[in-house]
Amino acid sequence: MKLLRTLTPTFRSTTLRNSPSSLRPFTLSAARCYSSPSTPPAGNPLPAGPGESGSKRQDKEKGAVGPFTLKAAALFGVTGLGLWYYFQTEKAALKQRKDQETATAKIGRPKIGGPFTLTDQDGKEWSSEKMMGRWSLVYFGFTNCPDICPEELDKMGLVVTSIAKSHSTELLPIFITCDPARDDVKAVKAYVKDFHPSLVGLTGTYESIKKCCKAYRVYFSTPPNAKATDDYLVDHSIFFYLMDPNGKFVDAFGRSMGPQEVEGKVARYLEQWDTREGRGPWSE
């Protein structure tokens, strides 16, 4: 589908460009006729003249149609039609190119996120409905994570604090475990305490966590048959996501991005948000 979409414009534009090029001689003469009305009478007999049979026919037809021969009229008509066709198709091609650009802009923003219901660090049901009307940062990790998760969560905390100051906007930081076998409510509660005071820690059943991770395109792998008491690490993707007040995905920030860089990007998105319309340039 995507391939088709990228192929069609090139196919189109070449076929379109080729067909008018065969019309070019007409187009040129027509343009000359149109731009300076004084030239046609002088120039008109000339193109019709050179061929012997042409001049003969011209003599025959002259009387019937006046200074304009049937051939010239036909030529004029064809040229006009050609021009009209050329501009019509060019216009269509331009529109298609424009449509395609906006389409890729929309396709470029992946569909990430979606509704979920998990359990927060106080053992209460926590649904993604709570993200509505607020900007949120979502991070997936696990409490036994050696160094990356705590670093990322610290970074997230810094961004939340500085955005609160600079934009008087309270981002909602959310940590979702991808190690539900070990990270029960108690573990998550103890873990989130170390980070930003408004950090929400979520856990759930393996199935609900898996579904949530899938919605957020988070890959994770726990060793097979892992028991809650085992000492293991969880492989997982390490992005954190910015979601807008409609719960729609805005951007993902990788590990290589420092807190200032993330902060700058988040600030720009906040500034692009149209509060009255409740949408940003990334909204569909």
Binding site: N144, A190, D194, D231
Partner: peptide
């Protein structure tokens, strides 16, 4: 508190508590 739990798991075969900021 948790750091006490952490350092108490001498063998470190399995963490008996969640390592907190200071334990990390």
């Amino acid at each position: 508190m948790a750091s006490w739990l952490w350092s108490s798991s001498k063998t470190a075969e399995a963490p008996s508590g969640i390592p907190d900021r200071s334990a990390r």
